[in-house]
């Protein structure tokens, strides 16, 4: 089956940042049917709250990876909403000029914080999706910067004109799926955690097969396992095709068949 991987970190704490490593990754990925890989950047290399120069450096690394594999790697721009509208706008404009297709948000703040308002405004103006790291953090101190599914869903609810990708289906679990019900501008990616059975089926039942995107979160995860959790799910072949490829193609506005 054809695959677009919406959630990867092909450079991780600087590891993998050579042309040879990226070429090897692309070759192996293509052998598994992966046609495109969204590189979300080496987002934690400078810690959880990168400053403007550090965000720029992360995005420059992504740009270089895109240059090495131009028909394979798609870049998302790493931003820190705490830095304010002016700084974010400048960096996003720079990244958009370089061909980036979306925004990646990690753990700089909670997605229900007020600092998200200017970010969502510029995302709406640019008409690009925002991928937000999300985990089941309800009741935990870490929620201050690690958004819970209820936080990311609230973000999507507050900004209905922005396409929001809630990362980590296997990290948000069954409650996260329930939180996401009824949000037509929200997608969930299948990345990370371990392949516990029943979650893809539940997501398809409750959110619909058009709302799920395949993602791996490599190198933290193993690609075969990540693909198998979708191809091995008890859902229709059409649903698998949509999750693995078509939904991401449409969301990212990729041309071709």
């Amino acid at each position: 089956m054809r695959i677009i991987d919406i959630h990867t970190h092909s450079v991780f704490f600087t590891k993998g940042f050579t042309k040879a490593a990226i070429d090897k990754l692309a070759k192996y990925s293509k052998s598994l049917g992966i046609e495109k890989m969204v590189n979300l950047g080496d987002v934690l290399v400078h810690g959880p709250t990168p400053n403007a120069a550090q965000c720029k450096s992360i995005n420059d690394t992504t740009k270089q990876v895109m240059k090495w594999q131009p028909n394979f790697i798609i870049g998302f721009c790493c931003l820190n909403p705490n830095l304010g509208e002016k700084v974010m706008r400048k960096e996003l404009d720079r990244c958009l000029e370089m061909g980036f297709k979306g925004i990646k948000l990690e753990i700089t703040n909670n997605s229900r914080d007020a600092v998200m308002k200017p970010l969502m405004k510029i995302a709406e103006e640019a008409n690009i999706p925002v991928l937000q790291h999300t985990w089941d953090t309800k009741g935990q101190a870490m929620r201050k910067s690690h958004s819970d599914s209820s936080d990311t869903c609230l973000l999507a609810h507050r900004f209905p004109n922005v396409k929001v990708i809630m990362a980590h289906l296997f990290g948000i679990g069954g409650r996260g799926i329930l939180e996401a019900k009824g949000l037509s501008n929200l997608w969930v990616d299948t990345s990370s955690c371990l392949p516990f059975d029943g979650l893809v089926e539940t997501a398809v039942d409750l959110l619909g097969e058009d709302r799920i995107l395949y993602g791996s979160d490599i190198p933290i995860r193993e690609l075969g396992q990540c693909i198998g959790r979708v191809t091995g799910a008890d859902i229709s072949t059409d649903a698998k095709k949509k999750i693995l490829y078509t939904n991401a193609k449409n969301l990212l506005g990729l041309k071709g068949n």
Partner: peptide, 18 residues
């Protein structure tokens, strides 16, 4: 780890390993 995990996920881990 069937039935807790998706069986195919773990078979593929081995099947496509380089």
């Amino acid at each position: 780890h069937t039935p807790l995990m998706v069986t195919k996920a773990n078979t593929m881990k081995l099947e496509v390993a380089p």
